[in-house]
Design a protein around this nucleic acid. Sequence first.
RNA 1: GGGCGAUUAGCUCAGUUGGUAGAGCAGUUCGUUUACACCGAAAAGGUCAGGGGUUCAAGUCCCUUAUCGCCCACCA
Length: 724
Amino acid sequence: MDLPDKFLKPYDHTQTEDSLYKKWEESGYLNPDNSPESDKTFSIVLPPPNVTGTLHIGHALGLSIEDIMVRYHRMKGFKTLWVPGTDHASIATQTKVEKELSKKGIRRQDLSREEFISHIEEFAQASHDTIANQVRKMGASVDWSREAYTLDEKRSLAVRTAFKKMYDDGLIYQGDRIINWDPKGQTTISDDEIVYQEEKTKFYYFKYGPFTIGTARPETKFGDKYVVMHPDDARYKEYTHGQKISLEWINGPMEATIIKDENIDMEFGTGVMTITPWHSAVDFEMAERHGLDKEQIIDQYGKLLPIAEEFAGMKISEAREKIIEKLREKGLLVKEEDYTHNIATAERTGATIEPQIMKQWFVAVNKPFKMGESHIEGIATGQEVTLKQLMRHVVERELVSIHPLNRYERVYYSWIDNLKDWNISRQIVFGHRIPIWYKGDELYCGVEAPTGDGWEQDTDTLDTWFSSGTWTFSTLGWPENTKDLEMYHPTSMLETGHDIIFFWVARMILMSTYCIGQIPFENVYFHGLVRDKQGRKMSKSLGNIVDPLDIIKEYGTDALRMSLIVGNGPGNDLNFSDDKVRAYKKFANKLWNISRFILENIGSLDIKKPETLTQNDQSYLDEFEAFSKDVDTDMKNYRYYLASEKLYAYIWHTFADIIIEAKKEALAGGGADSQSAQYMLLTIFKKSCALLHPFMPFITEEIWQSIKSGSDKDLIVHTWPIAE
RNA sequence: GGGCGAUUAGCUCAGUUGGUAGAGCAGUUCGUUUACACCGAAAAGGUCAGGGGUUCAAGUCCCUUAUCGCCCACCA
């Protein structure tokens, strides 16, 4: 055969990848509406990347695994849909833009709400464009015609509809409860957005009437008028619950009430503590139990209120030393010790969280409601359930299967069991406005604004996970009853990083089971974290961040994908090194040269199966058949890390090193043996390219264009070698 | 405090349901026998963290110890 010129040079990915992607995209292959009818569907939503910047190597890993799943099913003849999109990531994006603006000397306070939002939107749009380009660069075969954004009009409608439904069912309520206040971001955050950091500090013991109490936070103690101890503590048995005692405290004499509570740890400190219900979640609960007064000590900027008298208006850090000094002078300081504990900080701003009691919106996770139309096995329509029960049920019954299960099952359950009502309101501007309107004392909840004058919408926005929770079904058209929703929901698979199991996976299960009575996905596949060569987390401060685009430029997308996939089992972290990528770049070149050899040695691409194959060739074909089935089994069981490794080993070290070498003589000799060998080699190689296509889509498609017969379709939609 | 994971060749890691250890990189020797030097051939390298148990058979299952890592909770 005549050899196309391109095979005379080593493989050059820069000449092929972009144009192949363009071809796939323009061909319509990525939209399942254009694919042949089938009763089997495979659907998956792209975990929408945050529009806070660019994609990192972790995204590249996710995209690679997802694309393998998608291409595999597409070739197997499933109606295959992969919905792309991006996430507005309210708090993360707003924080980021705020920082960018301040670098330019623009302060947020100087902007109106609308101006600020428009800056954020501009940034979000630019990020979106970058991300969309990177998704293409990775070869991800998503259906761009269905692209979604968590803050676009359709998703916005879904969010308001979900909110209204929950509100009408009594699952969303407004209440004065203790929340996590971020004094820097000036917003509440959820429990999951807290990061604990170790802090070395002093632990003080103060005389409090007849007791000695311990605290690390003297500045909150002004209003403490309840002193708590365990009912079984023999040291304090002379005191009774409710007893009043007079004592001298920071700003003079006061009266305190004794409370007995079983939640006190008798071993810790002196076994006696005073409580500050306004600024501690534990104290708040205790106060609720006993019906105690609560008083605010610290304001939303972290400054002391008038109750602190001479200290009023001071920042916590400033006041602490002065308060201790005063207590020491009054002879109330007993002793101080060094103390190490964990303090709660806000994930985004790094500020120390100040618990506060504030009026916020919550989703009640423990409140029973009547289930709507249910398609969930074991949950009947109209049955009384709680959101927590729904979230637990679908995993317990394995309606949603987690891979790897054992590693995340307990984590998931324990999170659910400890889950408190979900605080969904945020005091930030970028996001979905809460669909509540006020007029005087009236309150209106609706999908659309109420008619009539004088209504003002709540200025808070929703926790970003409220909208991403609807992602699987809002992207398919809900609340409209669309064909997509009917065909592709529940989705087949959710592939994501294990770090967002609570944030996102659990919230999607909550939203989907509640809103539409369906599980959001049948399977969850967790990938691990991509670390640097030495196993360290990639971070800006270490300067070890790898940009996928740099790797792609140097080694090609196929090589990058293989290096991320081979040997990386679900849930495992992966150390990324150039060496591995380089190895798969060489593999790409190996494939290139195999193509060249075969093309040089066969008579025609439409070669027919000879009447008789040599026994040797037949046995190679039989072995290959068994190998293909093995690979297919791995694919079915999500063992991409094994399938890819086996393909690499087979193609290089069996097909090229042994089979091709063994056939050189027969090919040179001509005649029947040569015909047999030609057929065998071309057959195995074509099928090998097909098996490898999900992993290395570009080079396999590029080679395919030169080795396919006239009747073959493009490889992306070619039939998988092993039938379902 | 609770949970999970890791410990296999110099380095980075595979090893799917138990059947006498594999890859990449590095290193050794040889090869310009024309698909490929982004290559080929050959050899070298591991008491599979320690201990105990189950089994005809264990890197693989069970118990235990040690070291490292991650997640969750958190005490005033």
